[in-house]
């Protein structure tokens, strides 16, 4: 099916979420694995799955792809059961594994040709176009390719059949900035064409650039889910001010959203979550002569979240 999605979704299942997990659990023991994952990814979303190394991102993705089996819970993709309908799902899904695959003794073209051959119906022009856009030489021996070029092979095979759902495990690992930009364009085009993208990463700046919604996972448990705007509301401004009058730290501590206050020799430093307005009268009364405020990046916010000790899974209302 040239230039179109690998399989057109029926009208009925397009109303269903692209991915839905309920109580999904894979326990490897010693606290490793994934526990009670409840997650919904809507159709047409670009969804970022964020967490530190060993948080359970790859385990989640392998469960979705039926590459490993859950101890309990349920996952459905494109309104089909992840396990029972595994083959039907895979025909409509593009997948990029988190670890580089080794293919000794063959060319990059062989790898793509094999995977395209097994799928069937892949447009050769699409493969050529992806290879050109990602600057990938398909004639080269796969084993001699650099890390980044092997990742390009993985990207080509994930996008080549124009899948409805694209699941990417750390997709930009080893890619140079130009190819990263091309990758973002590919994701954008796929979403514009109606696809859903689910990608795991620990590079928050990358996720911030392309994702609509984000889930944070830590120690195998979902920590937080929200749109970028919702998460931005969590953002904290760092305020630095010089003043000539008097400023009582106790007055600052009573202000809503103000924390981490230090007053040292007519210099104030504090963090403000939410509006800065309540702080302004206090600063004015202290004859502020210099004021600097900057928003912490999403990365700094998340680092702050992950610096805190782990807590039990959040109630569903928070997701």
């Amino acid at each position: 099916m040239r230039g179109q999605r690998a399989a057109s979704p029926g009208a009925r299942d397009t109303e269903q979420p692209a991915i839905e997990c309920r109580g999904l659990t894979k326990d490897y023991g010693n606290g490793h694995g994934l526990f009670d994952l409840d997650l919904t990814v809507r159709r047409g979303e670009t969804f970022g799955f964020i967490g530190p190394n060993g948080a359970g991102k790859t385990t989640t993705i392998r469960l979705l792809m039926d590459l490993i089996r859950a101890d309990r819970g349920h996952a459905s993709l494109l309104a089909m059961d992840a396990r029972r309908d595994s083959l039907a799902i895979k025909r409509r899904v593009g997948y990029l594994p988190g670890e580089l695959v080794q293919f000794p003794g063959v060319s990059a073209g062989y790898v793509i040709g094999l995977l395209a051959g097994l799928r069937g119906g892949v447009d050769p022009a699409r493969i050529a176009e992806l290879a050109r856009r990602l600057d990938l030489d398909l004639g080269r021996r796969y084993e001699t390719l650099s890390h980044g070029n092997k990742q390009k092979v993985a990207l080509v095979q994930a996008f080549m059949h124009r899948p409805e759902l694209i699941i990417l495990d750390e997709p930009t690992l080893g890619l140079d900035p130009l190819i990263q930009r091309e990758f973002r364009q590919l994701v954008g085009e796929a979403v514009t064409g109606g696809a859903t993208v689910f990608l795991s990463s620990h590079v928050l700046s990358e996720v911030e650039l392309i994702c609509d919604r984000i889930a944070l996972i830590r120690d195998g448990r979902l920590h937080r889910v929200g749109s970028l705007n919702e998460l931005r509301a969590l953002r904290v401004h760092r305020v630095e001010a010089n003043f000539t009058g008097r400023l009582d730290p106790a007055d600052l501590a009573r202000l809503p959203g103000v924390s981490d206050t230090t007053v040292d020799d007519h210099h104030l430093g504090c963090a403000v979550q939410g509006s800065i307005a309540p702080l302004l009268p206090v600063l004015s009364a202290a004859n502020v002569v210099e004021l600097d405020s900057h928003e912490l990046s999403l990365e700094e916010v998340f680092l702050g979240e992950f610096d805190q000790p782990p807590e039990p899974a959040q109630p569903a209302a928070r997701r």
């Binding site: 392998r62 792809m65 039926d66 590459l67 595994s86 083959l87 039907a88 895979k90 025909r91 899904v93 997948y95 594994p97 670890e99 695959v101 995977l115 097994l118 799928r119 095979q157």
Partner: peptide
Amino acid sequence: ELLLAGPVS
């Protein structure tokens, strides 16, 4: 992993 990610059981 790569083969099973396609429609191969």
